[in-house]
Every structure is written in C-alpha cells, then in structure tokens.
Amino acid sequence: MRQKIIAAAIAAAAVVAAPQALASEELNFDAYRQMLADGNPAELFEMEGEELWTTARGPKNATLEKCDLGLGANVVVGAAAQMPRYFADTDKVQDLESRLMHCMDALQGIPSAEIINGSFLKGERAKVAALVAYVVGQSKGKPIQVDLAHPKMKEMYAMGEKTFYYRTGAMDFACSSCHSQDGKRIRATSLPNITTSKGAAEGWGSWPAYRVSNSQFWTMQHRLWDCFRQQRTAEPVFGSDVTIALSTFMAGKGNGHEAVWPGVKR
C-alpha cells in the first residue's frame, strides 16, 4: 500500500513538472532541476530509507541502528559527505552502498550475495537504494570531505584515476572520452569535466538522484553501472573494486565542494 502511494505521488509530481520543462528550448535542464528541487520526489525514498533504518528485519530481526557509517554507530548526519572511507573493521575502503550492504549482512543477517547478484530497483538492492536516499539526505548542504590519508584510500584514489583513463571495450571508450573537457555534451546532455575539482564534485555530488524521465531513484552504483553499459564494457559487479576506486577518485577530487544530494535528473 505504502509503495503504491509513493508511486502515485511520484507520478503526479512528474506529470505536473513536465509540461513547463518541455516548453523550454534550453539544451540544459538546470531550470527543470531547480523547479523540482523544492519537491524532489527523492524525499519519498528518503522517508522509506529512514523507516528501514529503524525497522527490525532479516534473519537476525535487527535494525541498522548499530551500523557505523564512519562517525560512530547510528550517526547518520554528515556521514555520506565523508564517504567513501577506510573502515578498520573490514580493512577496506567502502562507499555508502557497500558499507550499508556490510551492515545489513553483519547486523541483520541479510547475505551480501543476495544484493550483489540481484538487480537494481529490486529486492534487497532496492532497499539499499532507499537507505542511501535517507543517509545522503542527512548530508544536505555539506561539502564533500573525503579523508585520503590512509594508504588504502591513497591507493584506491590512484587506481580510480588510472581507471578513469582506461580505454577498453568495443568502442575504445574510457570515462575520460566524455568527461575530460569543459562544456561538452552528448546529444543534449551536459557532461561534467571530472578532471577538474569542480567537475568531479558535479559528477560525484549530484548522485544519487531521482530521474524524472523514468521515475526512478538511481544510486551512484547504478549510475556507474549504466556508464559502463554505454561504454560497451562487460558488466561491472555491484560494489566491486572498480566502482569503489572510481567513487574514491571522484569524491577525493571534488573535496571541498558542496554536494546536492539527492539530486534530480532528467
């Protein structure tokens, strides 16, 4: 029932917003986004995520209130702005999604494999997305502040930077093919220049986002997965090192700039 109400509200918001935006002949959709910012449908996912955080679930029938996102158990405010980060308990660099997956496994007994082998927008992976919406919503207006001091963070950043320029696949594309110059577009879509600090923050800090064109909430894992699809590579594994490396590179490069979590996209 709750799901239905959410879906209906999102559809209504999209319908109301669309006609004015379509009348615009602008090739960028900044005005569109501004218009939606006051009533970002992502808020509905934030609400769902907040409820999930405090709901006892999984084989262990536990909530996520003991989950440590880097600032201590149950500290959600400001946590997303400092991720990805190095976690001593897992001895790994984790982004928000892989950290949530770890917490769900460790605290609730929901196996990570179920999420890794699942599909976006479905099952437990959709639950992760709602939790992401809630957590990033608690970093609204905060600057990106990723701590690169740990050797494993340094290494992830360096690997992410190399990956950014790594050309492969059926069309020879790297991330840099589209994201290394200012003011470029694919079709009507503006491309952030991720080789600059401002552009990296634009890329990193506007996802996760609500996508008006398909009424879906997309996390950064989802966004990167679709980048690789369009790059014509094989399929990246959910939460795999390549996704963490690129995230660490973008977040680290964008350090100090404000993020607009959760964003609104065409």
Binding site: T163, Y166, T168, T233, P236, V237, D241
Partner: peptide, 19 residues
Amino acid sequence: MMKSSFKANGIASLDRQVQ
C-alpha cells in the same frame, strides 16, 4: 581489477576488458 570487477553478460564478454 578491470577484469576481476566485471562479469560477462550476453554479448558483452570479458575479453572486452583486455586492452
């Protein structure tokens, strides 16, 4: 990493990950 972080799916096979 460009191999181990990916899986084959349909026509997008893992040989695409080798430069």
